[in-house]
Design a protein around this nucleic acid. Structure first.
Lengths: 342, 342
DNA sequence: TTGAAAGCGCTAACAG
DNA sequence: CTGTTAGCGCTTTCAA
C-alpha cells in the first residue's frame, strides 16, 4: 500500500506531474503556480497549492535551471584556508551580497595547492556556478583560459599569473611603506622582517613598500629578513628567536601577516622582550595583544563585498574590460601596555 | 562565421552532442568516454577526447545528476555567523570531510534568524543537496518535517526543538561544572556570570553546569548574573562594568562564550582589574590575552568533522535511528600574566 | 563494443 | 487563461 492516491511509489519525491494528476490540471498549470505566474484562475491555483502541500511537493530547482538555461544561483569561492579569519570574513561578506541576488555560495579551500585549486575550478565550472571568486595560490593560473570558458572570475588578494581578470586587491605597498616610515621616524634603523612563502605576491608587495621607505631614508634593507615556510605561528616564533639571538638583533620587528604576528607575540612575551612590533593585517583580537603593535589595517569585509559585487556585475555584462579595485590601507596603533598585573 | 566546424553557435557551451558530431560517434560513446567506461575501443576514445579538448567541452554535472537521480554532490551547512571563528572552523573541518566524498559545501549564515534559517533549508532542499548540517537558532524547527522530507540532517551545537535527529553537541554542562568547581576550590564565593540570549540551549546547559557545582558547595547562584542581547563584545563589556560598579562586586567572572569574554577582557583591561576570569570557548588567541583566563576548551574541528561524517553515514543508510555524539570538554588555564611591560 | 530511444523534472514556445 | 509539444544535457535502458 502506498500513501499517495495516485499510486506513485512511496519514497520517490513527488514531481509536478504528480501534483498535476492530484489536482486534475496540466503540468504546465502546476509550473505556473510554482512560479507565481499571475494568469492562473484563483480557484485552480488554490487546488494546485492544496495538492502541492498534500503531496509535500518541493520544486526541483536543479531541473528548472537545466531547461531554462539561466543561472544556477550559485557562485564559487575558492580561498586558501576557510579557518583563517581573513578568509572567513571575506566569505561572510560575499555570502551577504550573494543573498541579495538569491544566490548561494559554495566555499572551498585550496590549501595553497595550485593543483587542488585547478581541480576546484574545474569542478565548480562543471557544476555551472554563475561565477567564481578566487584567492589564488602562487602558481600559474593559465589553466583558466581553457577551463573557465565563459565563467566570470574575480580574483581577490593577489592577481593571477596569466589571465587578465577583475581583481580586488589590498594596497599592500602603501600600507607597508607608511608603516616603515613611522618606524624610521621613531628612530629605528634595524628593522627585522618576517615573511612567509605562502603568498608570494602580497609578501613581495609588502616588502617593496618597506624598501621604498628604507630607501627614502637612505637605509639598507634585507639585513634582518627571515622567511618561513608554513602558516604555523610557531615557525614565526622560532624565526623571531633566531633573529634576537643573532649577532645584530633588530630594534623593531615587522610581521608580514597576522599569523606571523601571532607567533612573534608569543615569542616576545615568552622572552619578556619589549621589541617594537609592527605587522600587516588587523584583526579583532589585535587590540588585546599583550604586546603593543602597530598594524596596517583595512576593511576585510569590503574586500569580500566588492569582489562579490564585481562578480555579479560581470555576470550581468560579460564583455566589458576587466578592472581592478584596490582597498586602501591605514595604520592603527593597537595593543595594550599592561602594567603590573603580576 | 562561427568558430566551430559543426556550425553550433558561438557562445553556447559545447554539449556531448557537439562532441559526438565532431568525433563522428554517437552521443552515448561520448558519455562513456566522459565517464571512463572501459568498454570503448581506445582509438575511438582517443578521437572523442580530441574532439572534447578541441571544442573545449566541459561536462555539465547538473544535467548528469538530473537523469541519474543520484546525489548532487553538495551538502549544505547552515550556521549562525560564518565570520565567527567557531563556525568557520567547523565549516573548514566539514569541507575537508566533504572533499573525501567528492562533495562541495554550500555555506550559509542564518544570523540567528529562525525565519531565515527556514528559508535556507527550503532553498537548499530545492537545490537537492544530499544533506544538511545545521547549527540551529533558538526557534522552532518543526518545519523540518514538512520541508526536509527525505533530506538527511545533522544538527550541531544545539538540538532542534521538534524533530528527532542526529546531533553533535558539546559537553556544555560538564565543562562548566568543572570550571566552577575549580573557581570554588580557589575560594571564590561570588562568581559573576554573563551569558547572551542568542543561543538559549548552550547557555542554559552551561548555567546548569554552574549551578550543579554551586549546589555541591552549598552556594547560591544567580546573584551576579547578566544577560546580553547581542554578540557585540561591547555589550558584554558594559555588563561587566555594571557588575563591578554594583553593590556586591563578584570576585570572579564567568563569560558564557568567546565573544563575551572578548568584551569582558577589554573592560577589565581598561579598569586594570585583576578579577579572576573564566570562560566557555577556547580560541587561538586565548593564550595571548592580556588577562589570565581559565577556559573550557574542546576540539572544534572534531565537531565539524564528526557532523559531516555522521551526515554521510546517514546519507548512506537513511533508516537507522538518530544518534547523538557529545564532544568532551576540558579545562585549560590560558592567558599570560605579563609583568611590567609599562 | 556501439547506438537508438526514452526519460530525469522542469520550462519555453506555441496553440487553443 | 489553459494545455500540448518539444527539449535542456545528460544517463539509462535495451537492442544490435
Amino acid at each position: 500500500m502506498t500513501d499517495q492516491a495516485d499510486g506513485s511509489a512511496t519514497g520517490r519525491r513527488p514531481t509536478m506531474i504528480d501534483v498535476a494528476r492530484a489536482a486534475g490540471v496540466s503540468l504546465k498549470t502546476v509550473s505556473r503556480v510554482a512560479n507565481d505566474v499571475p494568469t492562473v484562475r484563483p480557484a485552480l491555483a488554490e487546488r494546485v497549492r492544496t495538492a502541492m502541500s498534500d503531496l509535500g511537493f518541493q520544486r526541483n530547482s536543479v531541473a528548472a535551471n537545466l531547461r531554462s538555461g539561466r543561472t544556477t544561483g550559485t557562485i564559487g569561492l575558492i580561498i586558501l584556508d576557510l579557518a583563517n579569519p581573513f578568509y572567513s570574513t571575506i566569505a561572510a561578506a560575499a555570502a551577504e551580497v550573494a543573498e541579495r541576488f538569491d544566490t548561494q555560495l559554495i566555499t572551498a579551500s585550496s590549501g595553497w595547492d595550485t593543483a587542488r585549486e585547478r581541480e576546484l575550478v574545474l569542478d565548480l565550472c562543471e557544476r555551472r556556478v554563475d561565477g567564481l571568486i578566487i584567492a589564488c595560490t602562487g602558481g600559474d593560473q593559465s589553466y583558466l583560459d581553457e577551463i573557465a570558458r565563459g565563467t566570470p572570475v574575480v580574483f581577490i588578494d593577489s592577481p593571477p599569473s596569466g589571465p587578465r581578470s577583475d581583481m580586488v586587491l589590498l594596497d599592500n605597498r602603501t600600507g607597508t611603506r607608511d608603516l616603515f616610515r613611522r618606524l624610521i621616524a621613531e628612530g629605528h634603523r634595524e628593522i627585522g622582517t618576517i615573511t612567509d612563502t605562502l603568498n608570494d605576491f602580497t609578501m613581495r608587495e609588502r616588502l617593496a613598500g618597506a624598501r621604498e621607505a628604507l630607501r627614502e631614508a637612505g637605509l639598507e634593507s634585507g639585513r634582518h629578513a627571515a622567511r618561513i615556510y608554513s602558516d604555523r605561528p610557531r615557525s614565526a616564533g622560532d624565526a623571531v628567536g633566531a633573529m634576537l639571538d643573532g649577532p645584530h638583533p633588530p630594534t623593531a620587528l615587522f610581521c608580514g601577516n597576522n599569523r606571523i604576528l601571532l607567533g612573534a607575540v608569543e615569542e616576545l612575551v615568552r622572552r619578556r622582550s619589549r621589541l617594537r612590533l609592527a605587522a600587516f593585517d588587523d584583526f579583532e583580537f589585535a587590540p588585546l595583544l599583550p604586546h603593543p603593535v602597530t598594524v596596517v589595517s583595512y576593511d576585510t569585509r569590503a574586500l569580500g563585498r566588492l569582489a562579490a559585487e564585481m562578480l555579479f556585475q560581470r555576470i550581468g555584462s560579460p564583455r566589458t574590460d576587466p578592472s581592478t579595485y584596490v582597498i586602501p590601507t591605514y595604520l592603527i596603533d593597537r595593543g595594550t601596555m599592561i602594567a603590573d598585573t603580576g
